[in-house]
């Protein structure tokens, strides 16, 4: 399924957060949204998933959702958003409970999502017993259990430490290789962007506009290979140059506001 963003602008009161955003995310593609703090990337993600109505413009989907899709636009949250009183299996099953399944269809979906994320043996554990990385794997399992047409990831790894982040990136690449889900990935971390995205959209600061869209012409599973290291590094440098001045501004502004 393709996602089309047409002329989306958004204002919070007086503040213009987004200005005339036009984007097309192709089926099976992963688009990263990067930009300095306050560029409106999370706002754009909320508008894309239909949980925020834009002031202007529209978002459309084109093409069929995958078979068995229960929730076309599905989020993965920075803070995981797990119910602490439910087990891992209970959390993964939560978005399935208001849908009808034949026989043990629901249990099979849960088991499938758990095994895909390597959580099989933790099905009966409670979130507080898990590490941060495992908790976000539960968040991912919950998202893929509904077979989404579009996966919306809101800084999914930023609450995790560096090693865990590496491990989860591998997991995401493996899952995408299998599911081919269209994804939009918001991050402020350039390494995540160049590792996970097919294209990287760079947003400018307030109002958020698309400054440039950079393609990463290396297949996901080859990006850590030595022969691509220079190209990847060049793209990273390019992205950094695109945001560095505004990142400095943003940093200073936060201080003056404080």
């Amino acid at each position: 399924m393709d996602l089309i963003v047409e002329g989306v602008s958004h204002r919070y009161g007086e503040v213009q957060a987004l200005d005339d955003i036009n984007l097309r995310v192709a089926d099976g593609e992963t688009l990263a949204l990067i930009g300095p703090s306050g560029c409106g990337k999370s706002t754009l993600l909320s508008i894309m998933g239909g949980i925020l109505a834009p002031s202007e413009g529209r978002v459309a989907a084109e093409g069929a959702a995958p078979d068995g899709c229960l929730n076309p636009f599905t989020y993965i949250f920075q803070d995981f958003a797990l119910l602490p009183w439910r087990t891992v299996a209970g959390n993964v099953g939560l978005p399935l409970e208001h849908h009808r399944f034949d026989g043990d269809g629901r249990a099979r979906r849960i088991a499938e999502a758990l095994s895909l994320t390597g959580l099989g043996e933790f099905a009966d554990a409670y979130p507080k017993q898990l590490s941060g990385g495992m908790r976000q794997r539960v968040g991912i399992a919950r998202a893929i259990a509904v077979r989404p047409a579009l996966l919306l990831l809101d800084e999914p790894l930023s609450a995790l430490d560096a090693q865990t982040r590496e491990l989860l990136m591998e997991d995401l690449i493996r899952i995408w290789a299998r599911e081919r889900t269209t994804s939009v990935y918001v991050t402020h971390n350039l390494n995540e962007a160049v590792r996970l995205a097919d294209r990287v959209a760079v947003l400018s600061r307030r109002p958020g506009r698309i400054k440039e869209i950079v393609s990463v012409p290396v297949p996901l599973d080859e990006r850590t290979e030595r022969r691509h290291a220079d190209l990847i590094e060049t793209i990273r440098e390019q992205l950094w140059r695109l945001i560095v001045d505004e990142a400095k501004d943003a940093d200073r502004e936060l201080e003056s506001v404080a």
């Binding site: 998933g49 949250f77 119910l83 009183w85 939560l94 208001h98």
Partner: peptide, 27 residues
Amino acid sequence: RNLIRMGQSFDMPYAQIVRKIVLPGAM
């Protein structure tokens, strides 16, 4: 609030959000 937003993002019906998220969370 993030748990309620999560429930809404999965299109959970209102009554189920109350029963499965709000009430246990208020316990």
